[in-house]
Design a protein around this nucleic acid. Structure first.
Length: 306
DNA sequence: CGTTTTTGACCCGCGC
DNA sequence: GCGCGGGTCAAAAACG
């Protein structure tokens, strides 16, 4: 496992983002607000400047807090990695023992999706053993990949726009997740054997987990569909392939920036591949512990200031 | 009218 | 053998 580079780099990335970019965003928002207020209420510019200074200072405090939170997160995660290295057998123990083999395989995947590298390595090694242990169906041998789609909280649909056309053929409520799981077949079936399952994550119900089985034997009917979804970030990880490629398409910025429809690398991180950057961002933003700590810290500071 | 979605029933593997 | 639970089928409904 080479998880530590992920941790350090992602945190550094986030720190840079928040230290450099956030103030600009806040300032621009304040500027627009100030202009609105100016046009309506004819406030004096000194008031706006004072407000700007106040909010900028507050933003700086929040950025500092975020730095501390990230450092704490980094420390905790390092400790966790060290603990997991020392206790590998406990790490691999199944959480729900009553699962089927294929399902428990997927379950480990879903529970570890915050650690894509770890996930890929363990998955590629264990899948062969499982398939040898139970050569049940071709679908087990088929390439299984997994996509994580961040949706808005109000979005209750189980639709993952990935560029292909799907036909829903079933829906079930599974035991380990109160949210229903939807079953899709490729619209080109039976010529295309690909299936996918879509279910909301237990830990973060704003995240849709799409599990793909098999590979398409045709091209995408419309690639625009994959990126035309409103405000979603897609993390695609291959679970069965040895190379365990994992691709992140962060589309959540589509509402506020124009360059989001083409997830090409930006110039602000020349040494870090964009895919890696977004993997790290997704890793952090989908971590419930990190989010809870961040929310608690920020809300606590806001209450303290008030 | 053809296609897609819904949803209850059924099948099948697994654990006890 | 039985019950549980995930996965699939297929008829009915909905939709364009």
């Amino acid at each position: 496992m080479d998880c530590s580079p992920w941790i350090n780099t992602s945190l550094d990335l986030n720190l840079r983002v928040h230290e450099q970019q956030v103030p600009e965003v806040v300032e621009s928002k304040l500027f627009s607000l100030g202009m609105t207020n100016f046009s309506v209420k004819q406030e004096s510019s000194s008031d706006l400047e004072d407000e700007l200074k106040r909010v900028t200072a507050e933003n700086k405090k929040l950025a500092d807090m975020l730095t501390v939170v990230c450092e704490n997160y980094n420390t905790l995660r390092s400790h966790l990695m060290e603990y997991m290295r020392k206790n590998p057998e406990k790490e691999l123990s199944p959480i729900t023992s009553k699962k089927r083999k294929s399902e428990s395989c997927n379950n480990n995947n879903s529970n570890n999706y915050l650690l894509p590298n770890n996930n890929g390595n363990s998955e590629s090694s264990s899948t062969d053993e499982d398939s040898c242990k139970k050569p049940r169906e071709e679908t087990i041998k088929a390439k299984i990949s997994r996509a994580y789609v961040r949706t808005e909280a109000s979005d209750t649909s189980l639709i993952v726009k990935d560029g292909y056309q799907w036909r829903k053929y079933g829906q079930k409520v599974t035991r380990d997740n109160p949210c229903p799981r939807a079953y899709f077949k490729c619209s080109f079936a039976p010529s295309c054997p690909v299936k996918k399952k879509v279910q909301r994550s237990v830990e973060d119900q704003s995240v849709l987990v799409a599990t793909y089985e098999g590979e398409h034997n045709h091209s995408q009917p419309s690639r625009m569909e994959a990126t035309s979804g409103s405000g979603r970030s897609v993390t695609l990880g291959s679970a069965a392939s040895p190379d365990s490629t994992l691709v992140t398409l962060d589309l959540t910025k589509s509402k506020c920036s124009n360059d989001s429809k083409t997830p090409k690398p930006k110039a602000d991180s020349p040494k870090v591949p964009q895919v890696l950057v977004e993997q790290m961002a997704t890793s952090l933003t989908t971590d419930p512990n990190f989010r809870a700590a961040l929310v608690a810290a920020i809300s606590g500071r806001l209450l303290h200031n008030n």
